[in-house]
Design a protein around this nucleic acid. Structure first.
Length: 331
DNA sequence: TAGTCGTGGGA
DNA sequence: TTCCCAAGACT
């Protein structure tokens, strides 16, 4: 790699700057740490397209970390509903309260790293982007870009971090992190990389090899088992009975329809919904019940969209209501 | 360390 | 349809 690959990458970033709600233009003051933090948490394993409207809603409703720290758990979880990986929302609340209590965000990656929901990548990203620390923020984009740059088929995280540190230009770690991520998202893509448009193709060992896509090697995939469950539809006076799931685990803390435990074997009910989670698929049947089960609340049917249901249960509600209305038309 | 933890869009 | 995978963290 030539010494000025970093310069060309940074220049490409400046020339092709993508304006996003949580970004500041290169050469202007950095965004507040609150906005950087919130966006980085939302963007974990989540696309820019999915995050953008949610980010706007969050910062409108809670403009500061102090405001977020004072919010009710249910309100934050409800705003997060549909975004997935709900442990992020639970950690978001815990983190906001810690930060508010200590009077603001810590300004180093090492101190940020000790906050809930902030790991190696996010701590480095916030430190670099919001506070200008020369920290190496390595996500999957950066790992792929750097692995290709050096034609490493099985990179370790420590190896990539060192190579990124070698690319750092003092005071521009934030730009470098975002430049690497943008390059990974738009040009150095997992499949069909656009090497002809790449500002550092001349430095790239994978490009020179003629098979850039081969770096890094793909992760082995695991089988996704099928599980089964039943959700209960309990309706009285134009309200439906909802419950809150246990605080930890899958969909932890989220609003839900009550229901059976989910099991491996099939159930004697027709599945109404098929939903894909990260490591298993679920077929969910819907069964009417007459009396409330467990702790919960009566949610008016006409406000069900605002109940903060995660996607599985939104799909179940939609399936039930569609099915009922079509049966009523037939009757 | 490998499993857990969502969702939606594109190929 | 099926598969991949997107600014990871936690245990």
């Amino acid at each position: 790699m030539t010494a000025n690959a970093s310069e060309r990458l940074l220049q490409h970033y400046v020339d092709n700057f993508r304006r996003l709600p949580w970004r500041s233009a290169p050469g202007t003051p950095p965004p507040p740490a609150y906005r950087v933090w919130l966006s980085e948490i939302m963007l974990q394993q989540t696309t820019v397209a999915a995050v953008t409207p949610r980010f706007e809603r969050f910062v409108t409703r809670w403009p500061t970390v102090e405001a977020l720290a004072e919010a009710k758990d249910e309100d934050v979880l409800s705003e997060w509903a549909g975004l997935g990986y709900y442990a992020r929302a639970r950690n978001l609340i815990a983190c906001a309260r810690k930060v508010a209590r200590r009077g603001g965000f810590p300004e180093t990656a090492a101190d940020l790293r000790s906050l809930p929901g902030i790991g190696d990548y996010t701590s480095a990203a916030i430190a670099a982007i919001a506070f200008g620390e020369d920290a190496a923020a390595v996500d999957t984009n950066v790992e792929r870009v750097v692995a290709r740059l050096h034609a490493i088929d099985r990179p370790t995280r420590a190896q990539i971090e060192q190579l990124v540190r070698d690319m750092l230009r003092s005071g521009r770690a934030g730009d470098l992190a975002q430049a690497l991520m943008d390059l990974g998202a738009t040009i150095c893509r997992p499949k069909n990389p656009l090497c002809a448009s790449c500002p550092i193709a001349a430095d790239c060992a994978a490009f020179a090899s003629g098979i850039p896509e081969r770096f890094p090697l793909p992760k082995p995939k695991r089988v996704r088992p099928l599980r089964h469950g039943v959700a209960y539809w309990i309706e009285q006076r134009d309200c439906v009975w909802l419950v809150r799931r246990p605080a930890k685990g899958l969909l932890g803390g989220m609003a839900a329809l009550p229901g059976s435990e989910w099991q491996d074997g099939p159930l004697p009910v027709r599945p109404a919904v098929r939903h894909i989670f990260t490591h298993f698929a679920l077929e969910l049947g819907i069964e009417r019940r007459s009396s409330a089960i467990g702790d919960g609340w009566w949610q008016p049917l006409d406000t069900l969209e605002d109940a903060g249901l995660p996607t599985l249960y939104r799909k179940a509600v939609a399936a039930f209501l569609t099915d009922r209305s079509s049966r009523r038309r037939a009757a």
